[in-house]
C-alpha cells in the first residue's frame, strides 16, 4: 500500500469520516444559502471536503470544525461563482417531514419566509452573503467567521452590518406586515 494511502487509512480517515458525516448537512445547507444551485452543490460539497481532507493536519481539534469547513466552502463558492445565478428561482428544499410537528399556518409562513429570506440574500454580494449566513443564520461568532474567511474582524463586522441593512431594506420593500404571522 502506498505510504500516503496507509497514512490516510491509519490516521485520518476514521476521524475525517466522523467529521464528514456530522457536518455534511450543515455544509450542504450553507451552500444552499450561498446560492449554489442544487445541481452544482454535490461538486461544491465534494471539493470542500476534498480540500478539508488534504488540509486535515492543519485542523485545530480544540475548535469547532464548522467555521473551518465553511471557510473552505466559501473559497470553493468563490471559485465557482460563475455558476451562481442571481435570477434563479427559489426552490424550497426543506422537507415537510421536518416540520411535521408544526401547524399548517406555521408551515405556510415558514415556507414563505424562507423564500423571502432567500430572495433577500440574493441582493448581497458573495462576501456579505457569506458573513451574514455564517453569523446570522448559522449562529457562528463573528471572530470565528473572520478567522475562517481570513479577513480582519472589522471587515467582518462591516460586511455583517451592510448585509443586515440590505436584507432589512429588501424585506421592508417587498413584504408587507400583513403577510407575516
Amino acid at each position: 500500500m502506498h505510504w500516503r494511502k496507509a497514512a490516510v487509512a491509519a490516521v485520518n480517515r476514521p476521524t475525517f469520516e466522523a467529521l464528514y458525516r456530522a457536518q455534511f448537512s450543515a455544509v450542504w445547507n450553507w451552500l444552499r444559502r450561498m446560492g449554489v444551485p442544487r445541481e452544482a452543490r454535490p461538486d461544491a460539497a465534494q471539493e470542500t471536503f476534498e480540500i478539508a481532507l488534504r488540509r486535515w493536519e492543519h485542523i485545530d481539534p480544540a475548535r469547532p470544525p464548522l467555521p473551518w469547513l465553511l471557510g473552505i466552502a466559501f473559497r470553493v463558492v468563490v471559485a465557482q461563482r460563475r455558476k451562481l445565478d442571481a435570477r434563479a428561482e427559489f426552490v424550497d428544499e426543506v422537507l415537510e417531514s421536518l416540520e411535521g410537528g408544526q401547524d399548517l399556518e406555521r408551515q405556510v409562513f415558514n415556507r414563505q419566509a424562507r423564500e423571502w429570506v432567500w430572495k433577500s440574500l440574493q441582493t448581497l454580494n458573495l462576501e456579505q452573503r457569506a458573513v451574514f449566513s455564517m453569523c446570522e443564520l448559522e449562529g457562528l461568532p463573528v471572530p470565528e467567521v473572520a478567522e475562517s474567511l481570513e479577513i480582519p474582524l472589522n471587515t467582518a463586522y462591516s460586511r455583517l452590518r451592510l448585509a443586515r441593512e440590505k436584507i432589512e431594506q429588501w424585506l421592508t420593500l417587498n413584504v408587507t406586515a400583513g403577510d407575516t404571522l
Partner: peptide
C-alpha cells in the same frame, strides 16, 4: 423570517 430560515435544514 430569519428564524424560519435558521430552523430550516435542507
Amino acid at each position: 423570517m430569519l428564524q424560519a430560515e435558521r430552523e430550516s435544514l435542507a
